[in-house]
Write a protein that binds this DNA or RNA. Structure first.
Lengths: 330, 330
DNA sequence: CTGAAAGCGCTTACAG
DNA sequence: CTGAAAGCGCTTACAG
């Protein structure tokens, strides 16, 4: 059957402690012995069981990644960055899609605790932070990615959503737009609220007040319908700021259905800069997705290393990416 | 500190064996005792360590998922389906992006073996199947998803790539197109070869022969350039079949750059039907992505359950999805 | 219906 | 430089 540390020890005529030492590069082992044991391990195709070592060493080298939906391109790109950065440090990652449902968050939280992951990156929203209770209860290290949770003091990496919203407003106003609409995510998502707030403030700073009738919230599914309402009303906007690329694509399709040409009849700006934006030639506020993922892993691992430390909070700047969906007011 | 099975046993005044039995619903425990122990576990927030139980029971309830790139929408959607179906059966999944590099395949294969996952779904290509050696060596159950590996006898789920290619050809020919081009993936990818083969055969069956100069292979990055070569040559095609949606989007952008209108000047058909296709209004051959993921998990779990059994091979039918990127020859 | 004991495959003081 | 032994937190025959 599969070789164990005992098989190697017997084959080498040493104790399992010695084999363990050469595996982990600990203790002082004579060079010849080390080489010999290494050779035997290689020859027998032996790799130590991480389950057994985790039981004693309390390290599983596994992380959990909670996101709303791994099939959403934004989170898929985040996941890739997290995977790569984790891998670089020897960690594997479990994917956990929550659909933003507290019940799923809690189920995964309990599961990850039972699996004894070394840490969890939380990139999902939730109504009630107590869904994380199973993690908190056992002091499982966590880090927040693109989310804020004011109630808990944990390492966090976000982009400056407020500045991103403001950048969108400034871009559209510079293009001459004055009648601005906003397609936001659900009210409960703080990043979306911040984007809208930044957009509104920057608009007002330029002397433009948002018409409350032109500010709507929308889920992923009904974005096209919500956008249609905006675009078909009388006195329709000349520009729409959407709080993520998916919503912006809903707006693009609504515009098409309403017979409007983009950008001539209406400018549209998204947020995130996922592959969806590049593929649809959407002007958007880019999040540094790769750095978000990398930074979250780094913060988490640092936190695992020194649990006492005060939690860091890193804010990354968003960047306007101009493409074909926005243009000067005609 | 964190409660263990000993704490629960002591609190309840019973042996750990009894606690273990109520956890696993095994043995005969008096109803009152069971209820009492359940209560104590709940009160102390106790959940058994899956690491410890894995060491004895040999079940980690973890699966590995090997894909080329989790940030590619096709595989992100696959991952979601695998995650959900796994979750339904109590399994968590590790994401493993290989970039189609044998070296990464092998590294992940070794890692997953060390982590003692209960099985691995392989949805990535590789030049040399021996990259899977670490898995094969320890008899880790595997299942193939949207890939074939003739050398090993393992459960497999694929879509009928040949039929999909043929469907694309029939669609274009029915629209009156005769001068057909193909943008394929690298030659080494069997699914791509099959799609091209099906396309070619169906075309020939309709009396249309492919011009070798109009059949090109391309990576993800240079798809636009490859498509431009096709579209800018003299005697350009009136329709292009692309072996996946990403390539088709490259073609879409190439067409735009070349000043061609889609679909009036050139029809384009993709493959996969990821979110990218719906978002760009691309006519495409749809793979049943969700069913692919579900089926792979089911085959794998069945294989885990009865290792002796002969491996199943399930072929799912693709479906033509007509959108705005193809139309009758004008 | 319940418990004592061995064992899963490692790591880690500790002793020599 | 190397080994004996305890322990990590469970499960599983086996005995009663």
């Amino acid at each position: 059957m599969k070789a164990t540390i005992y098989d190697i020890a017997k084959e080498a005529g040493v104790s399992i402690a010695t084999v363990s030492h050469v595996i982990n590069g600990k203790g002082k082992i004579s060079k010849e012995r080390r080489e010999e044991i290494r050779g035997i391990m290689a020859r027998m195709g032996y790799k130590p069981s991480m389950i057994a070592s985790a039981l004693t060493s309390k390290k599983t080298y596994a992380l959990g990644l909670l996101v709303p939906d791994i099939s959403n391109p934004f989170f898929a790109e985040i996941a890739r960055a997290v995977e790569d950065e984790g891998q670089r440090h020897g960690y594997s990652v479990f994917i956990c899609s929550t659909d933003n449902q507290d019940e799923k968050v809690e189920r995964y939280a309990a599961l990850l605790q039972q699996k004894k992951v070394d840490g969890v990156i939380i990139g999902t929203g939730m109504k009630d932070p107590s869904a994380l209770e199973p993690l908190l209860h056992d002091n499982v290290p966590i880090a927040l990615l693109a989310r804020e949770l004011p109630s808990v003091n944990v390492p966090t990496v976000i982009v400056d959503d407020y500045a991103g919203g403001a950048a969108a407003a400034e871009h559209l106003i510079a293009l001459g737009h004055r009648r601005l609409a906003v397609l936001a995510e659900q009210e409960s998502i703080s990043s979306s609220r911040e984007r809208v707030r930044g957009f509104r403030q920057a608009a007002e700073a330029a002397g433009v007040t948002l018409d409350p009738a032109l500010v709507r919230s929308s889920g992923m599914k009904d974005s096209k319908d919500r956008a249609l309402e905006l675009l078909q009303g009388e006195n329709r906007p000349t520009a729409v700021f959407c709080c993520n690329d998916m919503l912006a694509i809903g707006a693009l399709r609504a515009a098409k259905q309403a017979g409007l040409c983009i950008p001539q009849d209406c400018s549209i700006v998204g947020f995130d800069d996922t592959v969806l934006a590049s593929v649809t030639d959407l002007t958007t506020i880019a999040q540094p997705i790769e750095r978000l993922g990398q930074t979250a892993v780094q913060l988490l691992l640092r936190h695992i290393g020194q649990p006492g430390e005060r939690s860091e909070r890193i804010v990354l700047p968003p960047v306007l990416v101009m493409r074909q969906s926005s243009s000067a007011l005609s």
